[in-house]
Design a protein around this nucleic acid. Structure first.
Lengths: 194, 194
DNA sequence: TGGAGCATGTAATGAGTTACATGATTGG
DNA sequence: CCAATCATGTAACTCATTACATGCTCCA
């Protein structure tokens, strides 16, 4: 029994976090087509949430089906802008009110280190250096954003999420500093000849 | 051109990180059935990688199909233990040698905060408190593990991954401490009457 | 000895990624 | 006006989660 013409907000299937994020964006920045929404997501929440363009399109369509967003008139190509509806806003509020999800943290580098027994120190150094690089530039980027937020009258919520990123990067950097002390094989000279 | 009866290790479809993790576990702890492997994963890499039991079964079967693991004799129920093969070890080594993946970090709490305009301060306090709770116990757990690792002659690689967790939790805790300063609405008394 | 609870595995669904197709734009 | 590039959307596939089925164990 799947009645898809319900008018009440309550008995929709509950939003997933990605859909909620999209509603939030459409709410804050206004109507967007799929591509624009995707770019916008990268920019505004990309530091603590990932979603691909394909996901955006899929969710957009399924949100439209249940009336949480609505498509405007067709634009260039087969594109159309979607805007959030009143039901959408209500459902977003509902999600904000009830959602209670754990964070997902998946760090391939730690997998590698955990199984690094079978890994040459050379290579271990490499992957770690690569990791360090990426995080150094992330940290630099955060600092730059922080600079911008300092000078303008910024949204405190944006400030708060940014701060999380900064502290996270600081932790990563501390860890990288400690690493040589924790992993002797990192500093010992090429271990296979002695 | 997809020849799937190759015997050489090289031109298999490349491992995904989850499969690699499973190979690593089977390598380090020995033959396991699906369920046991799943529990074992929770314990050994659960702090920086997630995988569900169902995933374990699927991957186990597909790894078996390409000869990276092999099933032993049937046990109770329809269970059987799988062990890693020589090809499996080689492929794991290969993965460790070439993989280069970004980490995935998805923090629903930050999503909520980012869209918290439409969120009552009451509720915001709640979700944050909930988040804080979970992280406090995680931190406590890490410290306890650290204690254990201190007294025994521990694997440095395990120590290193644990240390990451500890520093991460410390960052979370610092952030939580700063939060009231960043979000005035958190401390201001019930904002809807003044 | 039977039934409560746990161990093990499977099926159905949902979410996420990669590779592709094709319509617009723009600079030479 | 053509070729290169970008913007937009789609399709096929892989990965992940949830809900389920069923066999074992153990104790009242």
């Amino acid at each position: 029994m799947d009645n898809d013409t319900l008018s009440s907000v309550d008995n929709q299937a509950p939003l997933n976090a990605t859909a909620a994020a999209m509603l939030g964006l459409l709410d804050q920045v206004g109507p967007l087509n799929g591509n624009a929404l995707s770019r916008c997501a990268d920019e505004l929440i990309g530091d603590f949430w990932t979603l691909t363009r394909s996901q955006v399109y899929r969710e957009l369509h399924s949100l439209a089906e249940v009336g949480l967003v609505r498509a405007g008139p067709p634009g260039p190509r087969s594109s159309r802008e979607f805007h959030i509806t009143e039901e959408g806003r209500a459902t977003l509020a509902q999600w904000l009110h009830t959602a209670n999800q754990d964070e997902v943290i998946r760090v391939p580098l730690l997998l590698m280190i955990r199984f690094a027994e079978s890994l040459a120190p050379e290579r271990l150094r490499d992957v770690i250096e690569n990791f360090a690089d990426r995080h150094r530039s992330k940290a630099a980027y955060y600092d730059q954003v922080a600079q911008r937020l300092r000078t303008t009258r910024a949204d405190p919520f944006e400030r708060a999420t940014l701060r999380f990123g900064q502290l996270f990067e600081r932790a990563v950097s501390e860890w990288l500093d400690e690493l040589p002390g924790l992993l002797p094989s990192l500093t010992s000279p090429s271990s296979h000849e002695e």
